[in-house]
Simulated assay, not measured.
Amino acid sequence: MTTKAISDLLPSAKAIERELIDLRRKFHRNPELSFEEAETAAAVAELLSGLGLEVRTGIGGHGVVADLTGDRPGPRIALRADMDALPIQEETDLPYASEKPGKMHACGHDAHTAILYGAAKLLSERKDQLAGSVRFIFQSAEEINAGAKAMIEQGVLEGVDEIFGLHNLPTLSAGKAGTRYGALMGSVDKFELTITGQGGHGAIPDQCIDPVVAASAIILSLQSAVSREISPFDPVVVTVGSIHGGASYNVIPERVELSGTVRTFSKSVQETMPSRLLRLISETAEAYRCKAELRYTQHVPVLVNHDDQVRHAEDAIDLILSSENRIEANPTLAGEDFSVYLQHVPGCFFWLGSGPENGAEQAYGLHHPKFSINEDCLAVGASLLAAISITRLGA
């Protein structure tokens, strides 16, 4: 496949940019949380049907899947976008801000959905350039790390040879992209912990067993799991994000509830963390005469890109944006359930710049209530996904 064959992709994407912006803003006004994306899915299915694609709905929750078959036989690649929003109150004051209190597209999944639709539109007009087929996966429930598993269980990867996906990055200027070989994003585990003591009057602690003090000691002891038990060359984060206990200033509660997350870059380290936390928590609780109940859930594995697919994505990025606008992405312990797809088929996940040009304005990060994107990234993202498909399937 020659450079000339995809030279018109970005101009073609720019020609439908207004449509993509309007679509993204429509989704932004009407965010839906994980496994609640019924209206978004219905809109996506209608748009894809209008392109003449074979569309299936209700896959893995509200997931939508559409297939585009080229003019000649060949492999099948998949392109994936996520659709769900977050339980965050928006603070952007944009004219198209969320109309649903307490719900916001604070991670840019509205943009991802518009981008993948744009790629589908570009590719549906270029079937004659495809020797094979493209599967468009619009996924629900990425934010709770459940959508990919649900879609895979319902066969979304059947017949798929490779998969590609992207995520917007507001700290990278629009018009740029970032790739990385190997591990790009961390594993995601969740733990919930109940510390039980014996409640009573705050003025008579000797007649109580204080779970608050035990919980405090446990939080500190958990950090030793990282600092003293794991090699400094194996990045790990243990974060307690929620503590609930007691209802009055002068009452020692019966129990304290904690929850948190564990992130790693190593499968072997991820597998050791449940027993390591259980030991530290149980023995520390016992030292304070309390009982501890740990509930540990492994959500998604480390996101590890495959070398061949990274090289291919980089070639497509260079053709669309030029190599000067492609960076080597830094690893992050933030997680993504795209990692689950990569356990089944080879693929590549990369960053799409969505921030202000040259850092001219403040860019709020993902999941921030003031998060927004530079909408110039929409046409760029659509053209990149289309370019990956055409160069991979072109004859």
Results as ranks from 00 to 15, higher is better:
Gln270Phe: 00
Phe371Ile: 07
Ala81His: 06
Val55Gly: 14
Thr264Asp: 09
Leu53Asp: 01
Ile252Glu: 02
Pro170Arg: 05
Gly178Thr: 10
Ser282Pro: 09
Val269Cys: 13
Leu130Trp: 04
Asp82Asn: 02
Arg180Cys: 01
Asp67Trp: 11
Val65Met: 01
His109Asp: 03
Gly74Arg: 00
Ser227Val: 01
Thr40Cys: 14
Arg279Trp: 13
Gly102Trp: 02
His312Gly: 03
Gly245Ile: 10
Asp110Arg: 09
Phe191Tyr: 12
Glu357Asn: 05
Arg295His: 15
Asp315Lys: 15
Ile77Thr: 00
Pro73Tyr: 10
Cys208Ser: 13
Leu47Asn: 11
Gly52Ile: 06
Lys14Leu: 12
Gly199Met: 05
Arg24Trp: 04
Gly202Glu: 11
Leu23Asp: 04
His299Arg: 13
Ser354Thr: 07
Ser140Phe: 12
Asp161Val: 10
Ile390Asn: 04
Ile152Pro: 06
His201Tyr: 08
Arg56Lys: 15
Asn145Gln: 15
Ala13Glu: 08
Leu319Arg: 15
Tyr181Thr: 10
Leu366Lys: 07
Asp8Gln: 12
Cys377Pro: 04
Cys107Thr: 07
Leu294Asn: 01
Leu10Ala: 11
Ala292Trp: 05
Phe136Asp: 07
Pro31Thr: 01
Ile163Tyr: 03
Ile163His: 09
Phe136Gln: 01
Gly186Asn: 02
Val44His: 10
Ala45Val: 04
Leu277Tyr: 08
Gly182Ile: 08
Gly355Lys: 09
Ala395Ile: 14
Ala42Asn: 15
Ile21Trp: 04
Met273Val: 00
Glu99Trp: 01
Ile252Val: 14
Arg228Glu: 04
Val212Ile: 13
Val156Asn: 09
Asp82Arg: 00
Arg276Thr: 11
Leu321Met: 05
Ala13Arg: 09
Pro211Ala: 02
Gln198His: 15
Ser221Pro: 03
Glu271Cys: 13
Ile137Lys: 08
Ala146Cys: 03
Glu336Gln: 08
Gly197Phe: 07
Ala217Lys: 11
Arg392Asn: 01
